[in-house]
Write a protein that binds this DNA or RNA. Structure first.
Lengths: 341, 341
DNA sequence: CCTGACGTCTAGAACGTTCTAGAAGGACAG
DNA sequence: CTGTCCTTCTAGAACGTTCTAGACGTCAGG
C-alpha cells in the first residue's frame, strides 16, 4: 500500500529532522545550510554533522517557493541539433558563476516549442533562453511581456518587443570565408545555402556582397541546400554537374559541409586539392580529426555567456542594451581548404 | 529598484487572485484547476474565465510541495550522445500517457554525473532514469536505497541492489552482425571494441562466441577502439596495417563506425567492395543517406517504454521483476555490407 | 550599574498550493 | 417535520523552506 515500497527510509529528511537531532531551531539549520553568517562555528559543525548523518538534502522546490527569486533560467533547445547541445553545455558553465541554475526543456518531433515553454513557465523560471526558436515573432513578444526572453541565433526583425537577441554576425562570417578563399586564389566560389533556416539569409547576403566586393559578381552561384547532411550531399551532386566546376564551396553549416565532403570523396574528387570546402558553426563535427573541416566558427561560449548575461541583467535591473547583441565569427582554417590549383 | 523591470504585471497571479476575481475560495479554484469533480458547471466556467483573464498559471513547485507525489521522473543523459538524445525524446513520449513528467539533467565535460544527479534529487524527482551511467555500481546501489533507479543500457553485475536495468542484448546484437557477415562469405571479421563503455564487454563477448561458433576462432581480432569518431578512425588505421587485412569489421557503435568509414574512404579503400562495415545503435547517424550504415539496431522506443514502465511500477507498488529487462536488437542491413570478394 | 551594540539563536509568519473537515442548502424518504 | 444523503462550497491546516522580529546573553564604554 505504501506509495514507494523501495524507498528505504520512508520519508525524506527535512530541516526539522536535522534541527531535532542537533537540538536547535529549524531557522538556524536553514542559515547553516545556506552558508550564511549567524551561527557559531561550534553549532555550525554540529548541525552539519547531524545533517550528514540522516542524509539531509535541501528541497529545491520548497526553497524556491519561499524565496521570491527562483534563480532559475529556462532553456529551450532542440534535442537533435549538435549546435544546440554544445550551447547548452556552455550555458551551464555560464550560469553557475552568475549564481543561476539551468532548467532544460527539450523540443523534439513529439514535443512542441509551446509545450517546452509551458513547462518552463510552470517551473517558475525567471527568464527564458530560447535556442533558435521557430515560434512566430508575435508569440515571442507576448512572452517577453511576462518575463525576460533571450532569443539565441535567431534574428528578429525590429521591433521585437522586449525580446533580447544574441546572434553571430552571419554575413560577416560568410565574408571571412570568401576573403580566405579569394586570398588562396579562388575565383569560382559557390555557396550552398540554408533556405529558410535561421541565419541563412544573412549568410547568403554576406556571400553575395563579398563576391561582388572582390569583383567576382559574375561568379556568384547559390545552390539550394539546407541544414542537414543529406541536403548538403544533394547540393554537392548539383555542384559536380556544374560547368565550369567551382574550385571552392561555402556550405550553410558543418552538417551540410559534411554531406558535401562525403559526396566529393565518393566521387573521387580530392578535397582540398580539387575543391576547397568551408563549413559554418565550428561544431564538434568540424573538429573531428577525420573531418578536419575549415569552418566559420561561431563563438559558442561567447553566445552562451551573452545570453546568460543579458537574461541576468534584465532580472537584476542592470542596464541592458535593447535589441541585438551580435558576436563576430572567426574563421577556423583546417584541412579542407588550399590554394586554387 | 524592482527586481524585474521587464515583467509587465509585477507579480505572478496566484490561486487567491483568481478566487478573489471569481468570488470563491481558493480551494474551489484549486479543484477546478485540477479538473477534479466537486464544482458546478456554472462556477467552473466562471473560474476558468477569471483565470484566463488574469493569465493565471499553476505554480508547479508549490503544487509539488504540497502533494506528496511529484510525478516527476529524473532523467540523466549525455548531451553529446545522439543515442541518448534519441532516447530522451522517446522518454518524453512514454512518460506522458503514464501521467508523469520528465525532468532533464545533462552530463557534459563541465558537468559531472554527480552534479546531474544532485540536481535531480534536489528537485524531488520520485525516480531516476540514468542513461548509460558511468558511476560505480556501489554508488548506484546507494541511490537505489533512496528511490527507484533505472539504469538504461548499462549492465550491472548482480547483485545490483534495487537498481533496475533495461538494456539491449548486446551479445545477441554482435552475434547477428557476425552471422550476417559470415552469411555473406566473410571469414576475416575484426571487431573494434568500446573499451570500458557500457555494453562493450557484452558486444566483445558476443563477437567472440559467434566467431567461435562459426569455427572462426582463429580469425578473432579485437582492436581497441572507443565510442567516438576519432577512436574509430584511429582503430581503422590499425586495421589497414593488419595482415592479412580483414574483409569486414564490426564497430562498437555508429559514431565509431563513421570514423572507420571516413578513414577507409580517405585511404582509397572501397566500402563495401573491399571491406564491409557494421555499426551499432541505429542512431540518426546511421540512417543518413550518405552514410547508409548497416548497423545493429537498438529498439530505442522499446528501451524508453520499459525504462518508464519499470520506474512507474516501482513507484506505484506494482509487481516489478527484479533485475534486468533485456530487449532484442535487430540488424538493419543498409549499404555498407556486401558479399566477400 | 546602566546603555547600547553585537553575536547567537528562536518563534512564527510567510510562499502557493492541496488536502481534510465539515458547513450550508436542497431533495427525498419516512 | 425529521433525518439522511447528496452536491457544492469553505475554512484552515499542512508541505519544507526562508524571512522578519525579537529574545537572550556577553561585552565594552561611560
Amino acid at each position: 500500500m505504501s506509495p514507494s515500497p523501495t524507498a528505504a527510509s520512508g520519508k525524506r529528511p527535512t530541516l526539522a529532522d536535522v534541527a531535532a537531532r542537533a537540538g536547535v531551531s529549524t531557522a538556524l539549520v536553514s542559515t547553516v545550510m545556506r552558508d550564511t553568517k549567524g551561527a557559531s562555528a561550534a553549532t555550525r559543525e554540529r548541525i552539519l554533522q547531524a545533517a550528514k548523518e540522516i542524509g539531509y538534502r535541501p528541497d529545491a522546490r520548497a526553497r524556491l517557493l519561499r524565496s521570491h527569486r527562483s534563480r532559475l533560467l529556462g532553456v529551450q533547445f532542440g534535442l537533435q541539433h549538435p549546435f544546440h547541445t554544445d550551447l547548452v553545455e556552455c550555458l551551464y558553465a555560464a550560469a553557475e558563476p552568475a549564481g543561476y541554475q539551468i532548467a532544460l526543456s527539450a523540443v523534439a518531433p513529439s514535443r512542441s516549442e509551446q509545450q517546452a515553454v509551458e513547462s518552463l513557465l510552470a517551473d517558475r523560471c525567471e527568464a527564458l533562453i530560447l535556442l533558435g526558436p521557430q515560434a512566430p515573432a508575435a508569440r515571442l513578444a507576448e512572452l517577453a511581456g511576462q518575463l525576460p526572453v533571450v532569443s539565441v541565433a535567431r534574428r528578429l526583425r525590429p521591433p521585437c518587443g522586449q525580446v533580447a537577441v544574441v546572434r553571430t554576425a552571419d554575413d560577416e562570417g560568410a565574408r571571412q570565408a570568401v576573403d580566405h578563399l579569394v586570398g588562396l586564389g579562388h575565383r569560382d566560389i559557390a555557396h550552398i545555402d540554408g533556405g529558410r533556416a535561421p541565419g541563412a539569409a544573412d549568410r547568403r547576403r554576406g556571400y553575395r556582397t563579398a563576391m561582388t566586393g572582390h569583383g567576382l559578381a559574375e561568379h556568384v552561384r547559390v545552390l539550394p541546400g539546407g541544414l542537414t547532411e543529406d541536403e548538403g550531399a544533394a547540393a554537392a551532386r548539383a555542384l559536380l554537374a556544374a560547368r565550369p566546376r567551382p574550385t571552392a564551396v561555402l556550405a550553410f553549416n558543418d552538417r551540410c559541409a559534411t554531406g558535401v565532403l562525403d559526396t566529393l570523396l565518393r566521387s573521387g574528387v580530392q578535397v582540398p586539392a580539387e575543391i576547397s570546402v568551408i563549413g559554418f558553426d565550428d561544431s564538434r563535427l568540424a573538429r573531428l580529426a577525420h573531418i578536419d573541416l575549415t569552418t566559420v566558427g561561431q563563438d559558442i561560449p561567447g553566445l552562451a555567456e551573452f545570453a546568460v548575461g543579458r537574461a541576468v541583467a534584465r532580472l537584476e535591473g542592470e542596464p541592458d542594451p535593447e535589441g541585438e547583441t551580435v558576436i563576430a565569427p572567426r574563421l577556423v582554417v583546417r584541412g579542407t581548404t588550399t590554394a586554387a590549383g
